[in-house]
């Protein structure tokens, strides 16, 4: 379980990216974070694993306050938090296997990681994850030889290799086409459901969020302005989050999208049983 308490972040430029965010994500919940660009979605996610240092407030994962840790202890705690990035952020010149194994970096001593001599169990786990995301036969390819969707699958496998207790996902579909986006979202939600893993997904695509999320939190100018089920995301709520922006245009998809949505809804139902 993750609990944020009064989390704020003010950048050195004086810009307040987050003000007083309080939020609880229970075990196994798939939570979407929506809001216009610049609302602080990315900052919020990065404050949790402290890629961005929060200015004040608490980040409590289990019973540890991450915001108060020293460097070494922070590294140990970061292992508990998997992260999936916008534009994949794979180490492009390393092989797929090395990228997945890099999820184990926090667990192995430096010499093992340098010589690529990971424990047998780690390698087995990495293979199992690659198989799970459907890339078993690409283990020896270099990451920059893969397509966008494949790279994001490697990103998912890397995050899961950490055996995390929480998954942070930052705009996972921003650079993918609609069909691949849906496949990736489905993969993430399925895997998290399998493992009972809580997830925070930062997502700008409202229809996609409504389709896959169990809960949606709307952020505007660093404050939470909506917190509820996808079904409660009414026009009024969206106007509250996005302002006067014509979010209706975002809903209009092509026929493929509608079809895919229906398909996804069926799958979600099946999962819920």
């Amino acid at each position: 379980m993750l609990h944020l308490d009064g989390l704020s972040k003010t950048y050195a430029t004086g810009e307040a990216a987050l003000s007083d965010v309080t939020l609880t994500v229970p075990q196994g919940q798939i939570m979407g974070l929506i809001g216009p660009s610049g609302a602080g979605k990315s900052t919020l996610i990065r404050c949790i694993n402290r890629l961005v240092e929060p200015s004040s407030g608490k980040v409590i994962l289990g019973d540890v306050d991450l915001a108060r840790l020293g460097k070494a202890e922070l590294r140990r705690q970061r292992r508990r938090i998997g992260m999936i990035f916008q534009e994949y952020a794979l180490v492009e010149r390393l092989t797929v296997m090395e990228n997945v194994l890099s999820g184990r970096l926090g667990y192995v001593p430096f010499w093992r990681s340098l010589l690529r001599k990971y424990p047998a169990r780690d390698i087995q786990t990495a293979y199992r994850l690659l198989d799970r995301v459907g890339l078993m036969n690409r283990a020896d390819s270099r990451a920059d030889a893969l397509s966008g969707g494949q790279r994001q699958r490697v990103g998912i496998a890397r995050a899961l290799a950490q055996e995390p207790e929480l998954l942070l996902v930052d705009e996972p579909t921003a650079s993918l086409d609609p069909k691949t986006s849906r496949q990736i979202m489905r993969l993430i939600t399925e895997i998290c459901a399998e493992r009972g893993l809580p997830v925070i997904v930062n997502i700008h695509d409202v229809p996609l969020a409504q389709q896959f999320m169990q809960r949606i939190v709307g952020l505007r100018a660093g404050r939470i302005v909506f917190d509820g089920a996808p079904a409660d995301l009414t026009e009024a709520a969206l106007t509250e989050i996005y302002g006067a922006e014509d979010w209706n245009a975002m809903r209009q998809g092509d026929s493929e999208q509608a079809e895919a949505e229906a398909d996804a809804a069926r799958r979600l139902e099946a999962l819920a049983k």
Binding site: M97, I123, Q124, A126, Y127, D131, R142
Partner: peptide, 15 residues
């Protein structure tokens, strides 16, 4: 799990 996965992996030579 029914399937077993390899326990060793060697980095393929690049150049």
């Amino acid at each position: 799990m029914s399937e077993t996965y390899p326990t060793t992996w060697r980095r393929p030579p690049q150049i």
